[in-house]
């Protein structure tokens, strides 16, 4: 078996240790004997929309995020839509999550996004939303928890009918108002949770690996369990931090 991961803009969109998410997936594939292939795609570059099972995009500084927004729209929009429609798994964190929407706001300016998800990010008065966060997620009929850290100035609002990734247990979430966090549409996942996200939530990493392998191999895949004592302890530790506020 083989998992082909595409890392979008690793030079620009890496601010909250996004590398940790990629390392986490790579090691969990290696330990199970699953082949792991990492491709990077940067500014000005196109990618083969049928050539990747999992597409990752992280967060960046304002200047970088703006450059990336322009590039996504100009160079990669068609490929992103094709990959999504084809069932590739997409995980976008923080700034990358904002770029999934129709637009986001930077100071006074409205910047066009991919429009891959029904959401929009605006600025409102009030401080940045910063702190440990925990959300309740239901992807397959089982309620689970994601824990992480959020740090965003933008407030994200989902269109009616657009599903969030989860509901805020503690922390701010998309906008600090409606109790929703992230976005989830079939194999598309967007969230403000970094920390990085996957090392703090090994179950989500395995869920995404499973979906990506299904996409590649065209059928359900049973993942071999791994000894996850440290992973569970790390999840609990991040969760405690979120619950302590």
């Amino acid at each position: 078996m083989r998992l082909r991961l595409l890392s979008l803009y690793p030079d620009q969109m890496n601010i909250y240790a996004d590398r940790g998410n990629l390392t986490f997936i790579r090691k969990r594939c290696e330990w199970r004997g699953i082949g792991f292939e990492l491709t990077s795609c940067g500014l000005g570059e196109e990618f083969d929309p049928g050539g990747h099972d999992l597409i990752y995009m992280g967060g960046g500084q304002d200047r970088d995020q703006k450059a990336v927004a322009g590039d996504l729209v100009r160079v990669k929009r068609g490929q992103m839509f094709t990959a999504r429609d084809d069932g590739a798994v997409i995980l976008a964190v923080c700034g990358g999550y904002q770029l999934l929407g129709r637009s986001y706001q930077l100071e006074g300016e409205r910047i066009e996004g991919l429009g891959l998800a029904g959401l929009e990010t605006v600025r409102e008065s009030g401080p940045r939303l910063i702190g440990p966060v925990a959300i309740t997620v239901d992807l397959d009929g089982t309620e689970r928890t994601l824990a992480g850290f959020e740090n965003h100035g933008g407030r994200t609002y989902l269109d009616t009918g657009c599903e969030p990734l989860g509901r805020v247990r503690s922390g701010h979430g998309n906008n600090g108002r409606d109790g929703l966090e992230g976005v989830h549409d079939r194999n598309l996942f967007g969230t403000y949770l970094h920390g990085p996200l996957l090392p703090k939530n090994a179950w989500l990493a395995d869920h995404l690996i499973g979906l990506a392998l299904e996409h590649h191999h065209g059928g359900p895949v049973e993942l071999e369990p791994l000894p996850d004592e440290l992973e569970s302890a790390a999840h609990q530790s991040a969760l405690r931090a979120a619950e302590a506020g």
């Binding site: 240790a17 940790g20 850290f149 970094h194 920390g195 990085p196 302890a233 530790s237 931090a241």
Partner: peptide, 30 residues
Amino acid sequence: RDVSWIWDADFEELGDRVRSVVCTGTRASE
């Protein structure tokens, strides 16, 4: 409050040189 940064530091550089390591503190397990 955010301990993400440990994933940006290159701990890989030292792995084969370590005889023992004790992790402690509020986020020891991470």
